[in-house]
Computed example of a mutant assay.
Amino acid sequence: MSAFGKPRVFVPVVTPFRPDLAVDTPRFIAFCRWLVGQGAGLAVFGTNSEANSLSLAERRALLDAVLDADVDAAQLLPGTGACAITEAIELTRHAAAANCAGVLMLPPFYYQGVSDDGLFAYYSEVIQAVGSDALRVLLYHIPQFTGVPISHALIERLIAAYPNTVIGIKDSSGDWANTEAMLKRFPGFAVFPGSEALLGKALPLGAAGCISATANLQPHAIARLLATTTAEDRAMWEAKVTALRTVVQTLPMIPALKAVVAHHMKHAGWSRVRPPLTAFSTEQANALLAQLDGLGFSMPPVQQVAA
C-alpha cells in the first residue's frame, strides 16, 4: 500500500479567469469545494490548471485562499515545480508549512538533455532547503511537455536518499509499459497514472489511484471506481470513466475541459484561458458537448458564485 493508503483521485483543478485574465478566486474555491465533495483531492497548479501561466505570487495567494476557505490541507497536492530552483523552494516550503498532503514537482524544463545527476541535485537542493519532516514529494513525469524524463534510476536514487520524503510519482507519459514497470519495480511507491483509463490495469498492480485532467469533469465516477469492491461494478465504472476520457483526450485538453465546465457551470468566463492558449470556439464547444451528451454525461451542480 502506498503512503496515501487507499487509492485516491486527485484533480489538476482548472483555473477560472476574469475578463482581465486575473484569477477568479471565489469561483476557483467554489469549484475546489465541489470537487472535494465529489470524493476527489486537489492537485492544484497542475498542467491543466495552467500552472506555468501563473506567477509565483498568484500560486501562493491562491493556495492560501483555498486553505482560508477551510479546505482540508490533507486534500491538497499542489504543483511546486519550477525552472528556477529558488521559486521551487519557495512554493514547496509554502505547501509544506501548510501541511499539504504532498507536492507534485515537475523537473526544471527549459534545459534539454540534462543528466540524472543534475535532476538529482535539483530535487535534493529543494528538499534540503525546505528542511521539513512534513514534506512529501511526488515527482512528475510528463516528458512530452517538459522534454525532461524522470528515469527509473533517478527514482531509485531519490528513494534511497529521501525514503520518507520522495514517496511517489505522477506518470503522464501515456506509456503504459513505463507505468507498469514502475509499479513492479517500486512496490509501496505511490504511482499515479495520469489517466483514469489505465486504472483497470494499474490498480491490480498497486497503483495509488490517478491524477487526471478529466477528473475535473467526472470526479465522482472515478472515486466510485476506486472504491468499488465487486468485479461487476468495477467493469461498469471503468467503462464509464474511460468513455469520457477517450473523447476529451483527443482534443486540446485545457480549452476542452474549460468549455465543458463553462457549459455546466452556466458561466462563460470558465472558458477563458491565458495566452498563448486559445479558448474553444462556439462550434468546437458545441461539438464536444454533443459527444458528451451522447454518453449521457452530466455534472452535478456547483454552488454558484456571483458574476
Rank of each mutant, 00 (worst) to 15 (best):
A84I: 03
C100E: 05
Y110A: 08
L138Q: 15
R8T: 10
A73C: 09
E238T: 13
F4G: 08
Q303K: 14
S124E: 12
E58F: 01
A84M: 09
Q38M: 06
A84V: 09
A51H: 11
C32P: 02
M182P: 00
G147Y: 04
A65Y: 00
L104K: 03
L35F: 03
A129G: 11
T230I: 06
F31G: 10
G102D: 15
Y110L: 15
T146L: 07
G41W: 06
R272V: 14
V9S: 12
L76Y: 06
I29V: 13
L106G: 07
E156M: 06
A307T: 11
A121M: 08
L54E: 02
V305F: 02
N48Y: 04
E196R: 08
W237T: 09
P187F: 00
A239Q: 15
T86Y: 10
Q75M: 12
K184I: 05
A88W: 01
D72E: 15
D116P: 05
A227V: 05
F145M: 15
S151P: 04
L217V: 11
P26N: 04
R59C: 05
G296P: 05
S172E: 11
A88F: 08
A51V: 11
L77E: 04
R224S: 13
V130I: 10
H263C: 10
I127K: 12
R274G: 14
A221N: 15
A88D: 04
G102R: 09
R8Q: 15
A101S: 14
K201I: 09
T15E: 07
A259L: 10
A223D: 02
T47P: 05
G5C: 07
P108Q: 09
A306E: 14
L104F: 11
R8I: 05
N48H: 04
G209Y: 00
Q144R: 05
L139Q: 07
G174I: 07
A40S: 02
L106C: 14
A207Y: 00
S2P: 06
I89S: 02
A259E: 10
V261Q: 09
P193C: 00
I169P: 02
E283M: 14
L203E: 01
F120H: 14
F10I: 05
R274D: 03
K170G: 11
A61K: 07
P193S: 04
A306K: 14
